[in-house]
Design a protein around this nucleic acid. Structure first.
Lengths: 226, 226
DNA sequence: CCCCTCCAGAGAATGATATTCTCTTATCCT
DNA sequence: AGGATAAGAGAATATCATTCTCTGGAGGGG
């Protein structure tokens, strides 16, 4: 078996022999590229299905069919449907964070930046059948109960953007003194996303449909000093 | 057939004959009682399973077995599993509303009452494996996407309690002027429940676990005048 | 008292999905 | 080229929810 000589070489060089490292690296890189391509095909297919059906109630089979690949391959790249959803969710949140940073990143007044961020986030999070921004919040709740850690990880980029803003706000004395800035950012993020979600429960009679401005108003007077 | 003479009698008396009305009434009342007993057995069984397993991922079969009844009967009393969940959810929220009213109902200062309400609601909503208060919020998200109207209805009693408080707060000038009181109550309710939910996503490293006081603090400075 | 109807128990049948397995074919690396 | 590895096709399995069929029993009307 090669295993033994490998071990000997390893102990001689303190690692893998260079050629092997290179080979493995090349091999894994190629494999990784292939895998990434495949994964993206699955993600694209799922995304397309979601916008087409306006819901996240798709079957794995649909994704497989649409991506022109096989179940076999799907389960080779994803631990299960939940990983696909998580990937989509993560991606959507990452893009949302980027968008926010792009639009509000160089605003000098941190409170103004936060207002922009809250509005954008709210609008991205409201379950809107118009496809521009994928309705990624619809499945977040389900994931939240089953995979809290992963959801937390997915939230990270967004939390980062908001935290930068609340930190700046604190620095210029615009944050209510008793609040830790990151804590405030987390609460704002979750509040905005969840309130956007909750618009689903109340757009029948004229009473409810909460707006981005209301949400901002509600959050803001919770953490803006004064 | 009896049908024809029934119709004659009906047209003669402007309704059912009294004996028949009574009989039907007695019969339907008995049936209703039986149905209620059955329904409660199912609800109790489900409740017990939830606290036993610490999750809402039970099967209908488990509920049926535990309640000592039959699938047949289950679907005779519930339109589906979701109705069972909804019933449980509704019940839990109703009880929570009652509890809040009992504890904070005769507090003169509406802001103090609201603080009590927020704390109680938060503590009832946090997914805590300790069984005292059933962890009813876990399945709310799933229901929210599928049965928004029913969820809205389930929220009603709680919303009512909070709305009474915000209305009183407004009356004594303790509510931020730009906020409509019922709107504020809705946002507070949803924020508290959702933030309690979100504690699930972050109780690993020492950073997160949000407390009831923090949530109160966050909400309060959003709607208390000044 | 007997029959008849309706309720409900037991559990098999169905249907939808996720997940795994088997066999075979294509692809890539050395 | 040759061997490993990925991947396609799709059957098999597992898990549930939901429905169906058959059956027994209890209560009420004749």
């Amino acid at each position: 078996m090669a295993r033994e000589s490998e071990l000997l070489v390893v102990s001689a060089t303190g690692g893998e022999p260079a050629w092997k490292q290179r080979a493995v690296e090349r091999s894994t890189r190629a494999a990784k590229l292939r895998a990434e391509r495949k994964v993206e095909q699955f993600l694209d297919a799922a995304q397309a299905i979601i916008v087409a059906k306006g819901t996240t109630d798709f079957t794995v089979q649909e994704v497989v069919d649409r991506s022109g690949q096989s179940l076999r391959s799907f389960y080779q790249h994803f631990g299960g449907k939940h990983e696909l959803l998580l990937a989509l969710f993560e991606d959507a949140l990452r893009r949302s964070a980027e968008q926010i940073r792009a639009v509000a990143g160089d605003e000098v007044d941190p409170v103004v930046a936060l207002r922009t961020a809250v509005r954008l986030l709210f609008e991205s999070s409201v379950p809107d059948p118009s496809a521009r921004h994928p309705l990624f919040t619809e499945f977040a709740p389900q994931l939240l109960v089953s995979y809290p850690a992963e959801v937390r990880a997915a939230h990270a980029p967004l939390l980062e953007v908001l935290a930068e803003m609340t930190v700046r706000a604190e620095a210029v004395g615009q944050l209510r003194p008793s609040l830790r800035p990151r804590r405030a950012a987390a609460m704002v993020m979750e509040t905005v996303m969840f309130l956007a979600q909750s618009t689903a429960i109340a757009d029948d009679e004229g009473s409810h449909p909460i707006t981005a401005d209301e949400v901002w108003d509600f959050c803001a007077s919770g953490f803006v000093a004064g």
